[in-house]
């Protein structure tokens, strides 16, 4: 795999809530086309890192560049899949409505999605195997199906970079397999994919790049060289005794 170009570069990123540092001086270069896992214990700042990188929350210091430009000016090239428990699944809308929301960015102000956007949304639903559920209300979906339509909503954006927050939590095994299959395919097409991940057992099978985080930056780079017992101990602290078995 060619990995010369940098997709995202994070510079001196720090973040604090009240008086507690949640991210400390992160410097990260993410090469284009990698399938990267962000791992770290609970409270390590993984979600915060994604949000600060995107500029959704304002970092205390530092900045993020996407393909050499300020990320705020380049949002069209990036798509975000939030944790699925962050929204109210009782909201009155259908599966298709949710996926259509992915087209809002390209539409610009005031304009409504039309036939073309609908077509794109249906194609995205097809990619995640959810076309049959198009007209369902979103409260009638299982965890795996919710995750699939969140992914479809991001796919509609046709972004070069995909950020996903814990996509495999509360998801059935079949969905997990299909999503990772799709991610690998997208990655082989040159898309950069960044996934906050919690299951250390699957890191080696799923990802080729890794960022290990616990408030401070522990290590980053190719999974083969970086995902070591030593680094796991540094990331997870004393709890790493059993973690070493996952290597």
């Amino acid at each position: 795999m060619q990995q010369n170009k940098t997709a995202i570069s994070v510079k001196d990123l720090s973040m604090a809530f009240e008086d507690k540092a949640v991210l400390w001086d992160i410097d990260l270069e993410i090469p284009e086309g990698v399938l990267m896992a962000i791992v770290g214990p609970n409270g390590a700042g993984k979600t915060t890192f994604l949000k600060a990188m995107l500029g959704v929350i304002k970092p205390a210091a530092g900045r993020t560049e996407l393909f050499g430009e300020e990320i705020k000016k380049n949002l069209k090239k990036i798509a975000y899949v939030p944790q699925k428990n962050t929204i109210d699944w009782d909201f009155p809308c259908t599966v298709l409505d949710v996926v259509l929301m992915g087209t809002y960015g390209q539409l610009g102000w005031i304009k409504r999605p039309g036939a073309k956007q609908k077509q794109q949304a249906i194609e995205a639903l097809d990619q995640v195997g959810m076309t049959l559920f198009m007209d369902r209300h979103i409260s009638e979906l299982s965890g795996g199906q919710q995750q699939r339509i969140f992914l479809a909503r991001a796919l509609v954006q046709h972004a070069d970079v995909l950020l996903m927050d814990e996509p495999f939590v509360g998801v059935d095994a079949v969905t997990e397999r299909e999503i990772i299959h799709l991610l690998k395919k997208l990655s082989s097409e040159g898309k950069t994919i960044i996934v906050v991940h919690h299951d250390l057992q699957t890191v080696k099978a799923y990802f080729n790049w890794i960022f290990m985080l616990n408030v401070r930056q522990i290590a980053d780079g190719p999974v083969e060289t970086v995902f070591t017992e030593e680094n796991l101990r540094l990331t997870y602290g004393s709890r790493s005794a059993y973690l070493s078995e996952t290597i």
Partner: peptide, 15 residues
């Protein structure tokens, strides 16, 4: 509508 449904996602679209 998007603001009401998922404001974080709306922010990532540049809203």
């Amino acid at each position: 509508k998007l603001l009401t449904f998922d404001s974080t996602y709306a922010a990532t679209l540049g809203a």
